[in-house]
Design a protein around this nucleic acid. Sequence first.
DNA 1: CAGTGGTCTAGACCACTAT
DNA 2: TAGTGGTCTAGACCACTGG
Lengths: 234, 234
Amino acid sequence: MLKYQEIAGKIEKSIKNQRLKQGDKLPSLEELVSQFNASKSTVRKALEILENKGAIYQLRGSGIFVRKLKRRGYIDLGLTRGLKGTIGEYEMTTEVLAVEVIDATSEIAKNLSIEIGDAVYYIKRVRFLHGQPLCIEESYFVKSIVTYMNKEIAADSIFNYLRTALKLNLGFSDSYFHVGKINEEESKFLKLSIGEPKFYLESIFYLATGKAFDYSKTTYHYDQAQFFIQATSE
Amino acid sequence: MLKYQEIAGKIEKSIKNQRLKQGDKLPSLEELVSQFNASKSTVRKALEILENKGAIYQLRGSGIFVRKLKRRGYIDLGLTRGLKGTIGEYEMTTEVLAVEVIDATSEIAKNLSIEIGDAVYYIKRVRFLHGQPLCIEESYFVKSIVTYMNKEIAADSIFNYLRTALKLNLGFSDSYFHVGKINEEESKFLKLSIGEPKFYLESIFYLATGKAFDYSKTTYHYDQAQFFIQATSE
DNA sequence: CAGTGGTCTAGACCACTAT
DNA sequence: TAGTGGTCTAGACCACTGG
């Protein structure tokens, strides 16, 4: 574990433990430096991470303050993670409709920067929140990177499997989304009428090496899903 | 201008000028250090900014590479800016429907962390892209912070005015969004039928000091607007 | 003006990638 | 094993906030 990660984690935990609220003040940089026995730069690196995560903000001449989200129950789109990683595991269930190896179509190949015909895992799932259909998702994983996959894994957290079992280093992601109308197939799975609203999200996930490995298309139930992003200047 | 900002800007410009593509390699850290006459840490700070912006990615032992978005015409939600700042000015026009000072309701007060009855500027606008209605927006600005406002300013870029004329330092923002159905009032402005899909976004913008100054509610035309986010791990 | 965060440097040493 | 990015330190000096 890196020192600055450890420090960031400890600060975050202390915010939780002390139940600090929006605007509450943390110890000064200098104090943190001596408290964690680290150099100023290292502590600042930790604070920068927390700042980018939206957990704190720093104000020159004044101090370091807690930044808290005001609302709950929103899906964080500012993360490079699977759904389970962002929503919390407890109330979510998954129905796996398909796990197959297929040849990449031109659409898949383009988004994953591979060749048409290259092998990809095709996974189709419906996900439920508190038993209500939340979304239907089709994912394509580059088989040369994600070498093995099965229904059990797909029913659980795929991203967790990639990180721990396959030891892949996730890097970054591009997410594109817009609003549309439910088509016939989606209407069945989400229990909606054709033409009702949908939230349509396409994401491309990359390894730390810059290689794309997952292209996912997800249609959300318009009434079940809400999202948030915490942005920071610059 | 800070040194690391200048360096970040120059690197970004050189990516554009040389028309570098996804995966193209930049000079090594060491080269950049000598090229810009800066210390390693300063150059790394610049590179970190570009990494968080989604412009590059760095790979230990290998090099620094260009990360490019694959698609165009999407609105970036990962920014703390007004619409004009993210979408480019050229094709956007604005119709101002209202600029008034009102008393904060409980909803407004809660989101802006002010008292009920405090004075806020209420601004209502419809925005057009290529002459087509893109969205209808209602904004509430804390009057004690945004001390002056008028129709001309509202017709242009409010955020630009805040930065340059009022010299406010923008800090961060929280954005919440979901999908819904158009109501009667929205249907008129967006030229849609009641019940058609809408993308509904609420944003709260904060100064660098942590004080909320703008609460905005925006309803987007489902067919005109698409969005993206570039996320980074860690 | 005291206190606090922000910038920048120079350098030691570590960890990963590619060949 | 050479090359390249990542971590961490110690310290000088700058810039802003608030009493």
